[in-house]
Design a protein around this nucleic acid. Structure first.
Lengths: 247, 247
DNA sequence: ACCTGAACACCGTTCAAGT
DNA sequence: ACCTGAACACCGTTCAAGT
């Protein structure tokens, strides 16, 4: 047939099919020939739309990152009052209702940047966890992918405008990515074989119940992510309060 | 030559060569044929020592996990006083020297389980960061690999003996793995191209200095890991203190 | 038991040829 | 411009053959 009147392929169609293949059968199952078959064309056809397989993967990755909600970082207007926010950011050392300052009142609850970070982290994780097999590629960094750069820009900008020093803002962006990519890369619970025979009491005295983990996969991983996220935000809020003390 | 008097290969020798290849050129560079060439044998020879390439990868992964220090989790004797530790775990709400309770005194500093967790996390990250290309494989979970199961057993056992409820201990093990694997999977700093042209001010108003990141790769990632680790431990210490309050 | 070469069904990518 | 089949240098793995 050679060249059809209306093109058989488009970058969009290729990206969608590639992501489905990766989701269903893993990164290893994505071959140009297999993908072409799935799209009912011959292997080399793909090279009319992407220079290399890596180029195609880049597009797939950026389509996933594009799903992450960044709206909580708002515009400059809504966040440019950061200076005053930092000034009264006493972050839970005392409360206006007279109750004593205790750890039972997580500082992060009252801190706008922490709320934004929490919402973003949840959206980020949801987008990645929907496509765990591509996380190793995506975790290599933004590279030149526009959605990934937009994400980094929004997070860093919001933190700086909230009063964080630039060096700290960079570190927070990095450590949040560590945590989110790590949590989306693979299920913790599913990593433990459901076969009880694996956990010989002589070798692993505390893993007697580990074979049950895989069955509760969803709740275990969700709970671990939420616990870690709140712990991180509380820890960061402590540091934010120390910034205000020094000034 | 067929069968030599003394074997040309051993599992040990194969694993070492495979890890070097992965470290130097990435997971994609590890092919059975290439590895065999590196070892001066023919491709199929490897199948006398490993059933499949996946089997070989499992052995490589477990050799890396074997480098992680677990000695800080000690024996049952040294950690079974956890009940009392929990009882006075006031976690920085007040200090004996009369200074006011401020977040400037991180609770995690005084908490034995947190100290153990910190030392372990650093060793864990160091072992993984030395071999970032294999982290995606390793992050899939312990599977049936003995060193990975030993690690999970030690962490979980120590937390439970320190007074954490089993469900919480599971979540902490999971979230620590999220953070450590995420931080070792790829450099945050190196993920940003050093080419300043990438960061168009119109598209990414806050990334004007991002091209400098890759140059400070080591310190940026180290700093982010340490900040995140301390924040996590402080956040967990707040929760540990709340456990004591309720009892 | 442990290595070899030949073989099978795969890869990513290039390229000349078709419309 | 966009598709095709043929071709090249690769893959993981099996297997019969050698000592």
């Amino acid at each position: 047939m050679a060249r059809p009147r209306t093109p058989l392929l488009s970058r969009e169609r290729i990206v969608v099919a590639a992501l489905r293949l990766i989701d269903d059968e893993g990164l290893g199952a994505l071959s140009t020939r297999r993908l072409a078959t799935e799209l009912s064309v011959s292997g080399p056809s793909l090279y009319n739309h992407f220079a290399t397989k890596d180029d195609l993967l880049d597009a797939v990755v950026d389509s996933v990152i594009g799903e992450v909600d960044l709206s909580m970082f708002g515009t400059a207007e809504t966040t440019e009052t950061a200076g005053t926010a930092a000034a009264d950011g006493t972050a839970g050392t005392a409360r206006t209702d007279g109750t004593p300052a205790t750890p039972a009142t997580p500082a992060a609850l009252a801190t706008p940047w922490a709320e934004a970070l929490r919402d973003w982290a949840r959206s980020y994780r949801a987008a990645l966890a929907a496509h765990p097999n591509i996380v190793p590629v995506l975790a290599q960094g933004p590279g030149r992918r526009p959605n990934a750069l937009r994400l980094a820009d929004a997070v860093f900008g919001h933190l700086v405008e909230s009063g964080w020093p630039r060096g700290q803002a960079t570190r927070i962006g990095a450590l949040m990515r560590y945590f989110v990519t790590g949590s989306a890369l693979a299920s913790f619970a599913a990593g433990f074989p459901a076969d009880a025979e694996v956990y010989d009491a002589a070798d692993y005295p505390h893993l007697g119940e580990a074979h049950r983990l895989a069955g509760h996969r969803g709740t275990v991983d969700e709970g671990a992510f939420e616990t870690g996220l709140e712990a991180l935000l509380d820890g960061l809020a402590l540091r934010y309060a120390r910034l205000a003390e020094r000034s």
